[in-house]
Protein backbone atom coordinates (compact mmCIF):
# COMPACT_ATOMS: atom_id res chain seq x y z
CA UNK A 1 0.00 0.00 0.00
CA UNK A 2 2.63 2.55 -0.98
CA UNK A 3 0.00 4.22 -3.16
CA UNK A 4 -0.89 6.60 -0.32
CA UNK A 5 2.62 8.03 -0.21
CA UNK A 6 2.66 8.13 -4.00
CA UNK A 7 -0.61 10.10 -3.85
CA UNK A 8 0.97 12.50 -1.35
CA UNK A 9 3.97 13.14 -3.59
CA UNK A 10 1.65 13.46 -6.58
CA UNK A 11 -0.41 16.15 -4.86
CA UNK A 12 2.70 18.13 -3.94
CA UNK A 13 3.84 18.08 -7.57
CA UNK A 14 0.41 19.11 -8.84
CA UNK A 15 0.24 22.05 -6.42
CA UNK A 16 3.73 23.07 -7.51
CA UNK A 17 2.78 23.00 -11.21
CA UNK A 18 -0.50 24.86 -10.58
CA UNK A 19 1.33 27.63 -8.76
CA UNK A 20 3.93 27.77 -11.53
CA UNK A 21 1.25 28.20 -14.19
CA UNK A 22 -1.08 30.39 -12.10
CA UNK A 23 -4.05 27.99 -12.40
CA UNK A 24 -6.73 27.30 -9.80
CA UNK A 25 -8.56 24.21 -11.01
CA UNK A 26 -7.28 20.74 -11.78
CA UNK A 27 -9.37 18.84 -14.32
CA UNK A 28 -7.20 15.84 -15.17
CA UNK A 29 -3.90 14.26 -14.15
CA UNK A 30 -2.38 11.81 -16.58
CA UNK A 31 -0.01 9.33 -14.96
CA UNK A 32 2.14 6.71 -16.61
CA UNK A 33 3.29 3.79 -14.50
CA UNK A 34 5.58 0.97 -15.50
CA UNK A 35 4.42 -2.56 -14.83
CA UNK A 36 7.40 -3.26 -12.60
CA UNK A 37 6.55 -0.31 -10.36
CA UNK A 38 3.61 -2.31 -9.01
CA UNK A 39 1.17 0.56 -8.67
CA UNK A 40 -2.38 -0.61 -8.11
CA UNK A 41 -4.55 1.94 -9.97
CA UNK A 42 -7.58 1.53 -7.67
CA UNK A 43 -5.41 2.06 -4.59
CA UNK A 44 -3.83 5.17 -6.06
CA UNK A 45 -7.25 6.57 -7.00
CA UNK A 46 -8.54 5.89 -3.51
CA UNK A 47 -5.50 7.55 -1.93
CA UNK A 48 -5.82 10.57 -4.19
CA UNK A 49 -9.55 10.92 -3.49
CA UNK A 50 -9.04 10.60 0.27
CA UNK A 51 -6.21 13.14 0.38
CA UNK A 52 -7.88 15.73 -1.86
CA UNK A 53 -11.29 15.66 -0.18
CA UNK A 54 -12.39 19.24 0.62
CA UNK A 55 -9.39 20.71 -1.21
CA UNK A 56 -9.27 22.51 -4.54
CA UNK A 57 -8.06 19.29 -6.17
CA UNK A 58 -11.19 17.36 -5.20
CA UNK A 59 -13.07 15.81 -8.09
CA UNK A 60 -10.15 15.86 -10.53
CA UNK A 61 -9.87 12.94 -12.90
CA UNK A 62 -6.95 10.53 -12.60
CA UNK A 63 -5.97 8.87 -15.87
CA UNK A 64 -3.55 6.00 -15.49
CA UNK A 65 -1.73 4.26 -18.27
CA UNK A 66 0.43 1.21 -17.69
CA UNK A 67 3.72 0.97 -19.54
CA UNK A 68 4.65 -2.62 -20.38
CA UNK A 69 7.98 -4.17 -19.47
CA UNK A 70 10.46 -4.02 -22.34
CA UNK A 71 13.71 -5.92 -21.97
CA UNK A 72 16.83 -5.80 -24.12
CA UNK A 73 18.62 -9.10 -24.56
CA UNK A 74 22.21 -9.03 -23.45
CA UNK A 75 23.27 -11.56 -26.08
CA UNK A 76 21.51 -10.38 -29.26
CA UNK A 77 20.22 -6.90 -28.27
CA UNK A 78 16.69 -7.77 -29.32
CA UNK A 79 14.02 -5.83 -27.43
CA UNK A 80 10.99 -7.76 -26.28
CA UNK A 81 8.07 -7.80 -23.86
CA UNK A 82 7.75 -10.98 -21.79
CA UNK A 83 4.48 -12.77 -22.50
CA UNK A 84 1.90 -13.72 -19.90
CA UNK A 85 2.11 -12.70 -16.28
CA UNK A 86 5.84 -13.03 -15.87
CA UNK A 87 7.92 -9.85 -15.73
CA UNK A 88 11.07 -11.55 -16.99
CA UNK A 89 11.53 -14.26 -19.63
CA UNK A 90 14.15 -15.79 -21.90
CA UNK A 91 14.83 -13.87 -25.12
CA UNK A 92 12.40 -15.07 -27.82
CA UNK A 93 15.15 -14.53 -30.41
CA UNK A 94 18.14 -16.41 -29.03
CA UNK A 95 16.89 -18.01 -25.81
CA UNK A 96 19.31 -16.16 -23.51
CA UNK A 97 17.90 -16.14 -19.97
CA UNK A 98 20.26 -13.91 -18.05
CA UNK A 99 21.36 -10.32 -17.99
CA UNK A 100 18.51 -8.59 -19.83
CA UNK A 101 18.43 -4.83 -19.34
CA UNK A 102 15.15 -3.19 -18.38
CA UNK A 103 14.40 -0.67 -21.14
CA UNK A 104 11.03 0.33 -19.74
CA UNK A 105 8.61 -0.77 -17.06
CA UNK A 106 9.94 1.09 -14.02
CA UNK A 107 8.43 4.51 -14.81
CA UNK A 108 6.18 6.46 -12.50
CA UNK A 109 5.56 9.97 -13.72
CA UNK A 110 3.01 12.66 -14.48
CA UNK A 111 2.70 13.00 -18.24
CA UNK A 112 0.45 16.04 -18.28
CA UNK A 113 -2.06 18.06 -16.28
CA UNK A 114 -5.23 19.69 -17.52
CA UNK A 115 -5.61 22.93 -15.62
CA UNK A 116 -8.05 25.80 -15.74
Amino acid sequence: MHELSIAQSLIALIEDEMAKHGKKTLLTVKIKHGRLSAVVPEALEMGFTALTMDTRLAGARLELEEIPVVLRCRACSREFTPEGSSAFAPCPGCGEELGHAVVSGRELYIEYLELE
Binding site: S9, L13, E17, I31, E111, Y112, L113, E114, E116
Partner: peptide, 14 residues
Protein backbone atom coordinates in the same frame (compact mmCIF):
# COMPACT_ATOMS: atom_id res chain seq x y z
CA UNK B 1 -5.38 23.85 -20.87
CA UNK B 2 -3.14 20.81 -21.09
CA UNK B 3 0.30 21.23 -19.61
CA UNK B 4 2.98 18.64 -20.32
CA UNK B 5 4.80 17.91 -17.08
CA UNK B 6 6.83 14.69 -17.26
CA UNK B 7 7.99 14.71 -13.65
CA UNK B 8 8.84 11.63 -11.64
CA UNK B 9 6.20 11.39 -8.93
CA UNK B 10 8.76 10.23 -6.38
CA UNK B 11 11.28 12.94 -7.29
CA UNK B 12 11.26 14.46 -3.79
CA UNK B 13 12.23 11.11 -2.27
CA UNK B 14 14.85 10.54 -4.98
Amino acid sequence: MQIPVVRNILEANA
